[in-house]
Design a protein around this nucleic acid. Sequence first.
DNA 1: CAGTGGTCTAGACCACGCA
DNA 2: GCGTGGTCTAGACCACTGG
Lengths: 219, 219
Amino acid sequence: MSFDARIRAAIEGDIRSGTLRPGNRLLSEHELAALHGCSRATVSKAMGALHRAGLIERRRKAGSFVADQHVHSAVLEVPDLAALIAARGHVYRWQLLSRRLSGSALHVEGLHHEGDTALALETRSIAIDTVPQAAQESFDTIAPGTWLLAHIPWTSARHRIRAAGASAAEARALGVAENTACLILERSTWRGDAAVTTVRQVFRGDMFDMVAHFEPSRT
Amino acid sequence: MSFDARIRAAIEGDIRSGTLRPGNRLLSEHELAALHGCSRATVSKAMGALHRAGLIERRRKAGSFVADQHVHSAVLEVPDLAALIAARGHVYRWQLLSRRLSGSALHVEGLHHEGDTALALETRSIAIDTVPQAAQESFDTIAPGTWLLAHIPWTSARHRIRAAGASAAEARALGVAENTACLILERSTWRGDAAVTTVRQVFRGDMFDMVAHFEPSRT
DNA sequence: CAGTGGTCTAGACCACGCA
DNA sequence: GCGTGGTCTAGACCACTGG
């Protein structure tokens, strides 16, 4: 095991076991280097990883401290529907319902099918100022999300996840009863300061869920 | 700006602008060091950050390559209910409904209130083999999640998020109509290989949503 | 002011894996 | 073999900030 991993494991172990408790001060980088018999640069790398993992806080002059426990973040897997459905052993299909150019936005509506069943209703608007090529696309066979992914990189995104009963129109499109519980994912995507696309996906609650993981201490 | 940040910005900019496309090979660390007039260690740090951010893939002997675009992960804020409700300007209260010791698990059920309204129904089981102190706790004034956070660190967690209509019992507890759309969060938590707790929280869909962000390139 | 983390250097050796 | 990334060293200077 590398020095880096060894130092991280030692400190992480002390935190997990309670030997080091939240707020406690860690040894300085100089002291840890001497303790482990390695250079300060290596200690710095290990401490940086612990910091990114949220296990410690670092303050100049004051030192490094065990961070408070937090359940407050996890890595959410945002699904690629085509891949997800294929992994389940079903056929994926995109069905375009409408396409309308209005002002500087292209509005697209369609259904994501899993086999013969509609899994999600998608309502999207694309900023043609940011993605002018989109105006030339029909989106009748390729889902706009797939197309966008291949044509324009984004730099930031915000997701909102909630539950709501299907409206009459949504229920009709998905082939479920009105007010059936649905998972609604709203995503806005930017490239720098320019909006790229905003999408709302209404998933049948009985056919879909999302998974998120937390794992500590990447390298 | 540091060399580290400058190198990352340069490569990230080339990827975002399309100058570098997925699959393209980057310059080697030696070449980048010469190009930017800094040491290879600094280049390595920058490349490590780009790798962690998912922007590049690295293979020994082959080199570093622009990774395929991916929408597949975002940072999910898993809320601390007490803090969340306080931030909204309401009073938080935990109400214990039941507490039962069964075999090696402690089962606790209760309600999270926002002001006078029940926001979420929580059903939890705690592994007393892993957390023996929990058997001594009544949980009549402190929510088990809060208590656990202060008493036992966890090392990994899995979350599942879905939507479903409230069952008769859930509807009664939350004071809503049966089949009202609810957001359901199920979380299992481990300490190493030992299960710590499993919790299911049923949120009123009309009062709660979750937010997730993606931001590229941490340091 | 003095000690901490933040950044950087100019080397080095190694493990891996393609040719 | 040999070029790549992975890791490490033994220094250095700086910026920040707590005492």
